[in-house]
Amino acid sequence: MRFSLYEKVLLAVFLGLFGLFALTAPNFLSETNLKSMMVQMPELGLISLGMMVVILTSGIDLSITYISSLSGIAVAWGLVQGWPVPLAIAAGACTALLCGLFNGFFIARIGVSPIVLTLGSMLLFEGLALRVTKGGSISGFPESYYVIGGSSVGPIPLPMLFFIAAAIVTSVLLNRTVWGRSAYMLGSNPTAALYSGIPVRRVLIYVYLFSALMALIAAVIMTSRYNSGKVDYGSSYLLLSVAAVVLGGTSVRGGSGTVKGTVIGVCIFQILSSALNLYGLSPHIVNVMMGGILIVVLVANYLSEHIKHALHDIGRVLTGKASASS
């Protein structure tokens, strides 16, 4: 695995923060906390993976968290009807894929701008979810379902393994498949991609289907953890996922970004949120700090680009290579 300079810095920041928290935050290294972090993180992580792929194509999916809650509710509903777990999950999958197809159709075939469309579809999915649950929650799942959210393989909770698997699969898809490569090129220059014969529409539809699928997996984990299905599960992840994706080095303009970066970004936000809670800080202050950190990172990124260019120019002048053409 090759880590870019930015990713190395990010990794260093993560390790540094981890160390800091291990030393100063009460109970940070306790089994309860570590386990809790490893169970929460996959939810944000999966949503972030889905969001990242969409952002790669210079789009955005504001509806992803409500696709998650709607498909989670579908699964919950199925379970309550007495369906076997795999069938209920399949119901959730169908719901998620329909939502993804909805988004993909309007964005890819009709050409609506992603931010505007997913604004509308976000309301639509939330409304549908509310319609089904009437604002309450659906609960009463069979014992076997709790296995997903509750069990572990050794010290590692199952959700975490799901996330690791999803991250690996996403990485392979993005780096080694035609679809993944097309997504990168599309995000950098949609015209050139189209003029090169890339089936832009098809690629985009798959992108939104992918994000819906990630939302589904997150939903399965969440409903299993909370033992119920409710509309607002995961709604706070929208902002955090965009923040994590951007922190991880993905550009909002599209065309660049890696799974590694996103994963590290998610990890950083997770340990931040856990540690700040352990410090006893009010959750509101935690929010302020998360926002502040995002801004600090963006500023630092900008400054470092500037410094890099400045050093580059200085280097050119010093070595006498400054020439009019290049």
């Binding site: 955005i60 931010i115 902002l239 965009v242 923040a243 951007v246 909002v252 303009r253 009010s282 509101h284 202050i285 935690v286 929010n287 302020v288 700090m289 998360m290 926002g291 502040g292 995002l294 801004i295 963006l298 500023v299 990124n301 900008y302």
Partner: peptide
């Protein structure tokens, strides 16, 4: 205007900060 990052990301950050302060 200064850090040349897309507005949506910057305002996502300030959203957290401003609402966090208000709530706190």
């Amino acid at each position: 205007s200064k850090i040349r990052v897309h507005a949506i990301v910057v305002t996502l950050g300030t959203l957290s900060i401003y609402s966090g302060i208000a709530m706190y």
